[in-house]
C-alpha cells in the first residue's frame, strides 16, 4: 500500500493508465446529474485540443444559478483547461482549439459574432496566484468599471469600489489606505482584492482557479466564507485540489479524470456515496 503515497508518478501512474485503457467507453461516460433546471451556462460535448493533443473530451455539464460548482480531480485532468473555456481565456493560448458548445444565457459564447470583451465582463475570473495590478488598491478595483465605462462620474466609481470591497470583505482592512499599492497587501488580502476587482464589473459568473492554493489556512477560511456569501448573487465555478474545500463551499461537485468528466452530483452525495469507481478511488485517497 505504500505506493499510494506517490499519486500519478512512478509505478502507480502506469497502473492507472492501464486501468483506463481497459475501461470501456461506457465506463467513462459521465454518471450522476450533470444537468440542472434553469442553468446559467450550458456546456455540451466540449472538446479542447492543445495542438494535436486532446486535453478534454466530450464534456457536458450545466452551471446553475446562485450555486457553487466545484471541479476536482488529479493534476492534469483538464479541470483548469475547462474552466478557462468558460470565459474564452484559452483564446490567448495560440495552439488551443475548442469544439462543442458553451452557452451563457442561451447564447453560444464561441459564436463568431460574440465579442470576448463583454463576455469576460459577464464571466469574471480569479486566478490561482493573487495577481493585483501594480496600481493602488482603489485603481485595482476601479480597473474594470473604467475600461468598460460603467460609471458617469467619480462618485459613482467611488461607490462601486466601496461596495465591491465590502462584498469582498476587505473594506474594513483597507479603507484608510486605498491609495497604497495593492501589491503591498498580504497574500490573502491580495486574493480578496482580486475577487473585489472581479465583482466590480457585476459579472454573472465568477470562475475561480484554485483561489486558495497560495494562501495560509486563515486566509483560506476567509476566502471560503466570502465564496459562501457571493453565492447568493453569482454563479461560481471553483477548481480546487482540496477536497475538504470542495465539500465546504460547493453545492455541486464535478470529478474530472484525464480529460473526461466522470461524475457530477450534489456535493454531499459525491463525497458520501460516489457512484463511479474512479470518483470513489479519488475521494477516498486511493490516488490523486
Amino acid at each position: 500500500m505504500t505506493e499510494q503515497t506517490f499519486p500519478l508518478y512512478g509505478g502507480k501512474a502506469a497502473s492507472l493508465q492501464e486501468r483506463l485503457g481497459d475501461a470501456s467507453p461506457q465506463e467513462r461516460k459521465t454518471v450522476g446529474t450533470p444537468f440542472v433546471d434553469d442553468p446559467r451556462m450550458t456546456c455540451r460535448e466540449v472538446d479542447v485540443f492543445y495542438g494535436g493533443k486532446q486535453a478534454i473530451s466530450k464534456v457536458s455539464i450545466d452551471i446553475g444559478r446562485n450555486q457553487v460548482l466545484a471541479m476536482i480531480g488529479p493534476s492534469g485532468c483538464g479541470k483548469s483547461t475547462f474552466l478557462r473555456c468558460l470565459n474564452r481565456m484559452n483564446d490567448t493560448v495560440g495552439a488551443c482549439r475548442v469544439e462543442g458548445e458553451i452557452r451563457l444565457d442561451g447564447i453560444n459564447i464561441y459564436d463568431p459574432t460574440v465579442d470576448v470583451v463583454p463576455l469576460r465582463a459577464r464571466v469574471g475570473m480569479v486566478f490561482q496566484k493573487p495577481n493585483p495590478f501594480p496600481k493602488s488598491i482603489y485603481d485595482n478595483v476601479a480597473y474594470g468599471p473604467r475600461i468598460h465605462g460603467l460609471t458617469k462620474d467619480k462618485n459613482e466609481l467611488d461607490e462601486i469600489v466601496e461596495t465591491s470591497l465590502h462584498k469582498a470583505g476587505l473594506w474594513e482592512e483597507v479603507k484608510d489606505r486605498l491609495r497604497e499599492p495593492g501589491t503591498g497587501l498580504s497574500g490573502g488580502q491580495q486574493q480578496r482584492l482580486c475577487i473585489a476587482r472581479a465583482i466590480a464589473v457585476s459579472p454573472e459568473v465568477i470562475l475561480m482557479d484554485e483561489p486558495c492554493s497560495a494562501l495560509d489556512p486563515i486566509a483560506t477560511a476567509k476566502v471560503e466564507e466570502l465564496i459562501a456569501e457571493l453565492r447568493t448573487q453569482y454563479s461560481i465555478v471553483i477548481v480546487t485540489h482540496a477536497m475538504q474545500q470542495a465539500s465546504r463551499v460547493s453545492q455541486r461537485t464535478a470529478y474530472f479524470h484525464l480529460g473526461d468528466l466522470i461524475e457530477v452530483g450534489p456535493t454531499e452525495r459525491i463525497f458520501t456515496n460516489p457512484r463511479h469507481k474512479l470518483t470513489e478511488d479519488y475521494i477516498t485517497g486511493r490516488f490523486g
Binding site: 490567448t92 469576460r120 465582463a121 501594480p134 480597473y143 475600461i147 482580486c194 464589473v201
Partner: peptide, 27 residues
Amino acid sequence: VPQSLRDGSLAMGATRFETIRHVVVPA
C-alpha cells in the same frame, strides 16, 4: 512582466491594447 498580470487584465474584459496601456507598461 508576469503573464499573470496580463491574464488578470484580459479576464476583466480588457482588450489587448488596454492591457498593455494600463497594466503591462506601468509594470
